[in-house]
């Protein structure tokens, strides 16, 4: 199947995907390398914290989100990275055993100013747990290749 170009994304497009179940091992492994705070590292310390149990680093939750985005959306598109994130909020803790999924809506798109073969797509993302609670939400940009000029003409005909 041909990968999606920038032209194939439409403002208002909505999708939902994911289903990643978070393990203790991955929380501790990420925390040891990047965010060694007691409530990300140690079950006993986490039980005594205000979280009441082991929770993922917020930056790891962003990673879980990214993996679901890549597997379900970007792998089928001409993805060229991202210039950034407008804002991101961690709304609720992500615990061991939580199953996460992503709700995506395209809210804006425009051609790239710096690369005439690329365009930007602005998305609103919500990451939800198995109870339907939003644990993280953000607005961010993706860059995608534009359809080559010769193919654009063919589509128009």
């Amino acid at each position: 199947m041909q990968k999606l170009y920038w032209e194939d994304f439409q403002i208002g497009d909505r999708r939902e995907y994911g289903g990643h179940t978070v393990t203790k091992e991955e929380i501790v492994r990420f925390a040891k390398e990047f965010d060694p705070q007691p409530f990300h590292l140690d079950e006993e310390a986490a039980r005594q914290s205000h979280f009441g149990g082991l929770v993922a680093s917020g930056w790891q939750s962003a990673g879980f989100f990214m993996r679901m985005l890549v597997d379900n959306a970007l792998a089928g598109a001409q993805s060229m990275g991202s210039p950034g994130v407008e804002w991101l909020r961690w709304r609720k803790p992500v615990y061991v055993g939580d199953t996460l999924h992503v709700r995506q809506e395209i809210v804006d798109k425009r051609p790239s100013r710096n690369h005439d073969n690329m365009g930007h797509v602005k998305n609103r993302f919500e990451v939800l747990n198995q109870n339907g609670e939003v644990v993280m939400e953000m607005e961010s940009y993706g860059m995608f290749l534009r359809r080559p000029a010769d193919e654009r003409e063919e589509t128009a005909r």
């Binding site: 990047f34 060694p36 705070q37 917020g58 930056w59 994130v85 804002w87 961690w90």
Partner: peptide
């Protein structure tokens, strides 16, 4: 993530953090 690692691993610059609600303009 590497930035978080650098921010958190310097004991001389540690702050009494109670967590973070998020970030803007990344």
């Amino acid at each position: 993530a590497m930035t978080m690692k650098l921010l958190i691993s310097d004991p001389e610059n540690s702050v009494a953090s109670l967590g973070s609600p998020g970030f803007d303009e990344l």
